[in-house]
Write a protein that binds this DNA or RNA. Structure first.
Lengths: 340, 340
DNA sequence: CTGAAAGCGCTTACAG
DNA sequence: CTGAAAGCGCTTACAG
């Protein structure tokens, strides 16, 4: 059986309060010799403080909760989640917090979900995506429970987002500037806010420039290379295929590149491709991917910091939006004459 | 203020025990009408059970702890961690457990580290790597605290490992079979058990086949593409470069491919490359990477399951080793005549 | 200055 | 069958 402060107190014939104060170095001061004795006995007994008992009183666990996005039955950790999580973890470490990932998060069972979230295991929550979780966010707001959402509509809950509209604008303007007029889109999950916003921005650009939006040039995918490949096959394997495709993220663009290779369509000479994210592999694949960079690590770190600010009732910052940058590499070029 | 079972009990003039039994549906039975009233009031008061209070008594948090490997000051979530974590999360979900990632894990401060681990936040621990944490594992064993280690020497603590020796053997035999005799190695962190074991297996193969081991053909890296590129540059940018290189993981192999491209060395005609992992990008890069596949997701899932088995004192399974498979793609070929 | 006691929100033996 | 009580391991006002 593990030892407790009671055991230490008994051994030294002092009160538990003194032991507690000695162990924590405050707030009440303890004579140095007593403190030393407590520390010695603690070591002898292999004492480890029970943080759960403490957090029952202090109402702080020093753990940040993460709610991953679930694009299907199982949880897929793509580069987006990977790098955002990396940012969260590094920032959490600096702030001396741990990170708990909630696995079960049934959209239909709001009550059960709330039970998990509010059970005291975490001091606050970072939602990787708000997709399907509006009722949960709503209740969290109502209960005033600290939370931050990525990929969510700005306004209601505190958010850390990326400027999708601006990012897509850069990508599309680049393609348009090269001479592309027939531009397709590998769309993300439409209920996913970023996916939705990028598609909106794409459509908006096409309309504004009087370009034809061909429905068969727009196919959905769940942000994976596999989905990207399948979707790309549908778009590219037809006589009236577009001369360029903008993919909602790099993973799908990678799948698109693969599909093009399979169909013998050479990139960028016969097809231009732009992705979104600038995940590390965008620079390692071949041809190297032209893409819209968003600072995934920084977004994660900012979300973690904002969450702790809310938990500790500091600044009233409630939303942050990161800019993007177009990274031109080797998958984009002018369309060839006969294509236009 | 959030409501508690006391509030419910007071409202209905019944005891907290009855409320507790009603809410939990047992173990004591409660008349249906009382149960209904309790549930109604609970809803009215927006009652959420405090799981921390419960876990103080039951000594179960239903949370599995993860200790990531830290290759440098900050935590790097490469594909290895990504897919292992994915396996852990999916399995944890099936087992109704959440997952807590420990951010702070100072190798020098064993006591402080143990405080975190044993604080009651988690029921057990999965170590992504044992690198630098032997003293911690030792104490965990001594205290009989449930834990499982990946990338660790089999024997002391329960482990889930991959058969590195066999995997490397396949990779090397493939290169040797193609006619390669001058084979270099992009080595992982030597204190990392998998990295160490792969290097041992590489050396062993070279020796057994009477091949020359040239120290300048072996360079270390921390498993990242960036390190792979730097290391590869050292190996390749010299007159007596090897005709093939075996990289300790795919990420470094990807960096190697990039370095070769920069140096104008064409793969596979002038240089053969084999990686390890078969992470998704191995099939998406160009040329597609020949590599040793290990079932990362399954390894994570198995570790999670083994941990819960230990926590709940089921089977006495204490170690599991997964096999590998050579996936031949486009980065390996016979060496050209003039190279031999 | 230090000890006895209340209490965090639960679960569960123990009485009645 | 149900309530009063003890207790999980702590923290911290409250007495002395």
């Amino acid at each position: 059986m593990a030892s407790t402060i009671k055991d230490i107190a008994r051994r030294l014939n002092i009160s538990v309060s003194t032991v507690s104060y000695a162990l924590n170095g405050g707030p009440r001061s303890v004579p140095e010799e007593v403190r030393d004795k407590v520390l010695t006995v603690a070591r002898e007994l292999d004492y480890r403080p029970n943080r759960v008992a403490r957090s029952l009183i202090t109402r702080r666990s020093h753990v940040l909760g993460i709610i991953p996005h679930r694009s299907s039955r199982d949880l897929i950790l793509g580069p987006f989640m990977q790098h955002v999580l990396n940012g969260i973890l590094n920032e959490a470490e600096l702030m001396m917090q741990h990170v708990l990932i909630f696995t079960r998060c049934d959209e239909k069972d709001t009550a059960g979900t709330m039970d998990q979230f509010l059970g005291g295991h975490v001091d606050g929550l970072v939602f990787i995506s708000s997709d399907g979780l509006e009722p949960v966010l709503e209740e969290l707001r109502h209960r005033n429970f600290p939370h931050v959402a990525l990929s969510a509509r700005r306004g209601a809950s505190p958010t850390v987002t990326v400027d999708n509209v601006n990012g897509v604008e850069r990508a599309m303007a680049h393609l348009y500037g090269l001479g592309h007029r027939k531009i397709g889109h590998l769309r993300g999950i439409p209920t996913h806010y970023d996916g939705w916003e990028r598609h909106e921005a794409y459509s908006d650009f096409m309309r504004r420039h009087g370009l034809p939006i061909n429905p068969s040039w727009i196919v959905d995918g769940r942000f994976t290379p596999f989905d990207g490949r399948c979707a790309a096959l549908k778009i590219l394997d037809r006589p009236d295929r577009p001369t360029a495709v903008f993919a909602a993220n790099d993973e799908m663009a990678l799948g698109l590149l693969e599909a093009a290779r399979e169909l013998g369509i050479s990139v960028p000479s016969q097809l231009s491709v732009v992705g979104f994210d600038d995940s590390p592999h965008a620079a390692l694949c071949y041809p190297r991917l032209t893409t819209v960079r968003q600072p995934l690590n920084d977004i994660g770190a900012a979300a973690a910091r904002m969450l702790l600010d809310i938990i500790e009732e500091r600044d009233p910052v409630t939303s942050l939006r990161f800019g993007t940058e177009l990274v031109i590499r080797d998958t984009t070029a002018r369309p060839t004459e006969d294509q236009s």
